[in-house]
């Protein structure tokens, strides 16, 4: 899936960030005379080198990302079955239908619910686990591994596994409820439209909290001991140290983790597809599932393209706004350092 590759790159980023970012050891202002000429030549050589190294990546990026996005944009204006050239131009009709479609509006609502649950429950849970495992604790490495393990598992295996665990009557979950005397509740988990989303969220939490936990732990490692010690000497309680020292210093990590979590929730597909295929009666359907249904089951590819365009726009606008207003402070170092060096 898209977001897992994305997450990996984020892990790499956070590993690399130890490198002092803002080293403004500028090459100095370009003076006149021969020094200025060599500087200019060096800049030219630099640009050529950069272009040469970037072009394969840019070419692939254009071919595999830009072109398909533009093509989806184009086909979303057609009533098109997916084969042959699109001919039946309908303008924005697909989008008009889309925003009147109860299933799609439901997708938006369910996406919102999943984001709210993720940010409100899953991430705080991951943070508390990270703080806990950051203490001196017997078997700490083992727990870290244990909690991170689900993230390594593929979405499909996770899906199949939890279909069995939450199987009505015969599954592990119902047996567990039986043992504590709650067997009569008769919860059917994925099979009931009123419980399916919450059950799905449980699985998502199981699967992804370990990843966020590792992110937070990396962030915690880089908080200098002495700041915490100073706070302790000043008489700050454990909670105060967490609230006023750890949490603010962890800010950048939290902001990135929220970003990844939200993008992941918007694009959620494989886990849901394997477990419920969006059912019962659309109760767990996401935008990506609706897109797949129309694109590959109904062969209404123009309409499916319209869904993918809306999905893209939501991600795009969210990412821009988030970068502009939330990540700005974290970005500053990276951006200004480049300018300083040039």
């Amino acid at each position: 899936m898209a977001h897992s590759a994305f997450k990996n790159s984020a892990v790499k980023d956070s590993a690399l960030e130890k490198r002092p970012a803002g080293k403004a050891t500028a090459a100095g202002p370009a003076g006149g005379g021969p020094r200025g000429r060599t500087a200019r030549r060096r800049r030219l050589v630099d640009s050529v080198t950069i272009a040469a190294f970037l072009s394969p990546a840019m070419l692939l990026f254009a071919l595999l990302v830009l072109v398909p996005i533009l093509y989806a944009l184009y086909t979303s204006l057609f009533k098109w079955g997916g084969f042959g050239a699109p001919e039946n131009f309908v303008g924005l009709e697909n989008f008009r239908t889309l925003f009147k479609d109860e299933v799609f509006l439901g997708d938006l609502w369910r996406g919102f619910v999943l984001i709210a649950l993720s940010v409100g429950i899953q991430l705080p849970f991951a943070l508390s686990m990270a703080v806990l495992l950051n203490q001196k604790l017997r078997g700490r490495a083992f727990y870290r591994l244990l909690f991170f393990a689900p993230y390594v598992l593929s979405e499909v295996i996770t899906g199949v596994l939890f279909t069995m665990i939450f199987a009505p009557d015969s599954g592990l979950a119902d047996h567990a409820l039986d043992l504590v005397g709650l067997g009569d509740l008769g919860i059917t988990w994925f099979a009931d439209s009123s419980t399916v989303l919450v059950t799905l969220f449980l699985v998502m939490t199981w699967k992804y909290f370990g990843f966020h936990m590792i992110l937070y732990m990396a962030g915690l490692q880089s908080i200098p001991r002495d700041v915490l010690e100073a706070a302790a000497i000043d008489g700050a309680s454990a909670w105060q140290r967490f609230r006023h020292v750890t949490l603010p210093l962890l800010g950048p990590t939290i902001r990135i983790s929220v970003f990844l979590s939200i993008i992941g929730a918007i694009q959620l597909f494989d886990l849901v597809w394997v477990i419920t295929a969006g059912g019962p009666v659309h109760a767990s359907e996401t935008m990506a599932i609706t897109m797949f249904q129309f694109g590959f089951k109904r062969y209404q590819v123009g309409y499916a393209s319209a869904i993918s365009v809306v999905m893209f726009l939501i991600c795009f606008v969210f990412a821009l706004v988030y970068q502009r207003y939330v990540l700005r402070r974290d970005l500053e170092g990276a951006v200004t350092s480049m300018r300083g060096r040039r």
Binding site: D13, I266, A319
Partner: peptide, 21 residues
Amino acid sequence: TEPLSRRSFLAAAGLAGISVP
């Protein structure tokens, strides 16, 4: 944490759009 570069977030956001066609 170094934030995502513009390129990689574009890639991530873009992947949402490429699946169908």
